[in-house]
């Protein structure tokens, strides 16, 4: 078995803002293998952005290690390491410098790493533009002239300039219309196949997770609460937060409805405020037990599906689809 491309081991990141101490990320470990797509799911405050920053080298872990292709990444990264990772950001309207042309934006990594002569660079930029579905002639345009979807394509082209092995995609389609998102998801899949890229796909949209990722990591308040293969987790979510996430998805069909667990929306729970000890989800969880307030749970489960919960959702014996289909049948009869 080949070693993982990206290995994050027990990483912690603590910020000191004024007199407050913020544990942005606590005890996170994950791996991404060559050519696979791992999704990180979380809402605001989950720490997913901090985790991305740690992997990208924008932040340095307070403790723990980040390894890329077997090499441990320290504070100052070598140019060689930087070439291996590409970044695609969320906001297509701020990811490109408004005062530079598309060609200049894509050419920046080539400039920084001194790759190729002027003519070679020009050719490469044209190549990359074609690869992401744009015209090579676009290189002299300014971002102002492009739509959101086109800008994201440029961002993807820029991320591919140095032939990276891993792409970190931070909510790459969240700001796009759904039909444009469909284009970009296809493009990403085609590129992944062609270049054998690994994707670390950060998103809050579980529908997108379902179609792009093979493995998913669910984060809440800086911790991993559930992780495993997409199939296992969608079949039978165990952690209560995952249950809440799935129950909150606005689904568009009855087949999709069947994948939504129930959630007691009217249950009385305290609003706001994150508790200091124990499980951070406790304050929103109608299923919390006493132990939840004392310590954070260890991971239970198999290598394919692990979760950190003292009172998890019971394992679904049948795939949810079948259960729901039964309900539908009975209704129709």
């Amino acid at each position: 078995m080949s070693p993982p491309l990206l290995k994050v081991t027990k990483v912690n990141k603590v910020f000191h803002v004024g007199s407050a101490t913020i544990h942005a990320v606590t005890d996170i470990s994950l791996t991404v293998n060559k050519g696979e797509t791992v999704a990180i799911v979380g809402e605001s405050g989950s720490g997913k952005t901090t985790l991305a920053n740690l992997i990208l080298g924008i932040e340095v872990p307070t403790s723990g290690e980040v390894e890329l292709a077997g090499e441990q990444l320290k504070g100052r990264r070598s140019k060689a390491v930087r070439r291996k990772i590409g970044l695609v950001q969320q906001n297509p309207y701020s990811t490109l410098n408004p005062r530079k042309s598309i060609g200049q934006a894509i050419g920046l990594p080539l400039d920084v790493h001194g790759i190729g002569s002027r003519a070679e660079r020009r050719r490469r930029i044209g190549q990359l533009l074609e690869k992401v579905g744009l015209n090579a002639g676009h290189r002299d345009r300014r971002p102002l002239a492009l739509s959101g979807g086109q800008r994201q394509r440029v961002a993807i082209a820029r991320a591919l300039t140095t032939n990276p092995e891993l792409l970190v995609l931070d909510e790459p389609t969240s700001s796009l219309d759904v039909s444009v998102q469909a284009h970009i998801l296809r493009l990403l899949r085609d590129l992944q196949k062609e270049f054998d890229l690994a994707y670390l796909f950060i998103t809050h949209d579980l529908g997108v997770v379902r179609v792009v990722a093979s493995r998913v990591v669910v984060m809440y308040r800086g911790r991993v609460v559930e992780e495993g293969s997409v199939a296992a987790i969608f079949h039978s979510p165990r952690h209560r937060y995952t249950q809440l996430l799935l129950a909150s998805i606005p689904t568009v069909s009855e087949e999709d409805d069947a994948f939504r667990p129930d959630w007691p929306w009217d249950a009385e729970v305290k609003s706001d405020g994150d508790p200091a000890e124990g499980c951070p989800f406790r304050s929103r969880c109608p299923f919390a037990v006493e132990r939840c307030g004392q310590e954070f749970p260890d991971m239970h489960g198999s290598s394919d599906h692990r979760y950190a919960c003292f009172n998890p959702r019971p394992e679904a014996s049948e795939p949810i689809v079948n259960l729901q289909a039964e309900k539908l049948e009975r209704k129709k009869a």
């Binding site: 998102q181 469909a182 296809r186 529908g207 379902r210 179609v211 998805i249 087949e255 069947a258 939504r260």
Partner: peptide, 10 residues
């Protein structure tokens, strides 16, 4: 729209 019920790309 991506669906939960299948992993096909929309």
């Amino acid at each position: 729209v991506p669906r939960l019920s299948s992993n096909e790309l929309p």
